[in-house]
């Protein structure tokens, strides 16, 4: 780990100020950043400790919930309001990491965690995300865990979060503060595709800090699932995951929302597939057609072509679980 200056901010304004100038990073839970610093992937000149900021509350907000950036993943997942009103979010958070990590990792840090691409993590290899312009050895290399949607010629990394897949399906908003004040970012515009600038994971501007994740008012909480498929039954990143929420009006889908994890540089939604299901019966046939709409955009590599069929089946299974009101259990790993 490189040496760095340590600053402990007492206010949001102090944190924003401390971020300017030097190669500074915010730190709260530290579960990703400290790890990256040990690998020399992150080499900040200054760490700004924000754990003392008053951003650790979960509050009712405009009929929904406002989850402070410093609320830990464990507090968020087990909060009664989150668990009862946004169970897809609680389920997604509990599908990720471990008890120890969820006690430390924060809501804001989960949003801003970096990819787990092995080339990104290995500073002996080129990586356009770590060192822009050096190349992407994952393309044509070992790419079993990499993206099949929204890739660019410079990067095929995925966003690793489970929580964010649920937040994408829930149409959350991210409230941030920066040198020019506060703003809210729709979730779909927070993370970005790699394009020609894969070094940027999201649309945060220099000096901006996440204040909260805002969840909109939600009138459905029973027809959902978070289905995560991975190489071992716990504590592994998703190969493919699906957060699905269905609004049902009798035997008709009045609204379908679903996002995929583990397949792109951001949680992946497909508006056409969701619109296709609107007004239709929640049948396997319709779910298969929706899944086919999603996967026809896939551009896999040699090592991850299996993800296309895996994603198709996960979508169908996830929508089926949501329609039946039988969400995937976090502890019983049999896929319902």
């Amino acid at each position: 780990m490189n040496r760095f200056d340590y600053v402990r901010a007492g206010t949001v304004a102090e944190a924003v100020q401390a971020l300017s100038g030097a190669n500074a990073r915010l730190i709260a839970g530290g579960t990703n950043l400290v790890d990256l610093m040990k690998y020399n992937v992150e080499r900040p000149d200054r760490l700004v400790d924000i754990t003392r900021l008053p951003l650790n509350a979960i509050e009712d907000h405009e009929g929904g919930l406002r989850i402070g950036a410093l609320v830990t993943n464990a507090i968020a997942a087990y909060d009664e309001r989150v668990a009862s009103r946004y169970p897809v979010l609680a389920s997604a958070i509990l599908a990720g990491a471990t008890g120890q990590l969820r006690n430390a990792a924060t809501t804001g840090g989960n949003l801003n965690q970096r990819t787990r691409c092995y080339y990104f993590y290995d500073d002996a290899t080129p990586c356009n995300k770590r060192e822009p312009g050096t190349g992407c050895p994952a393309i044509g290399g070992v790419n079993r865990i990499h993206a099949i949607f929204g890739i660019s010629p410079t990067c095929i990394a995925t966003h690793p979060s489970d929580m964010c897949v649920a937040l994408a399906a829930l149409d959350a908003e991210i409230r941030v503060a920066g040198p020019s004040g506060e703003r809210s970012i729709p979730f779909s515009e927070y993370h970005r595709l790699p394009g020609g600038t894969p070094q940027f994971d999201n649309t945060l501007q220099p000096g901006e800090i996440v204040l909260s994740v805002d969840l909109p008012a939600q009138d459905t909480a029973s027809h959902y699932t978070y289905l995560k498929l991975r190489d071992r039954l716990s504590y592994a990143f998703a190969l493919v995951s699906v957060a699905a929420i269905l609004d049902l009006d009798g035997d008709t889908v009045s609204r379908a929302r679903f996002a995929l994890g583990g397949v792109a540089h951001k949680p992946w939604r497909n508006a056409e597939a969701e619109a296709f299901l609107q007004g239709k019966a929640p049948t396997r046939e319709n779910f298969e057609a929706a899944a086919d709409i999603v996967i026809r955009e896939a551009t896999p590599q040699d090592g991850n072509a299996f993800k296309v069929e895996l994603a198709r089946r996960a979508i169908i299974r996830g929508l089926t679980q949501a329609a039946a009101g039988t969400p995937q259990s976090v502890s019983d790993k049999r896929i319902a």
Binding site: D5, A22, R46
Partner: peptide, 9 residues
């Protein structure tokens, strides 16, 4: 700032 280790390092 509650704590500032000073700069540069």
């Amino acid at each position: 700032m509650l704590i500032d280790s000073g700069s540069p390092r």
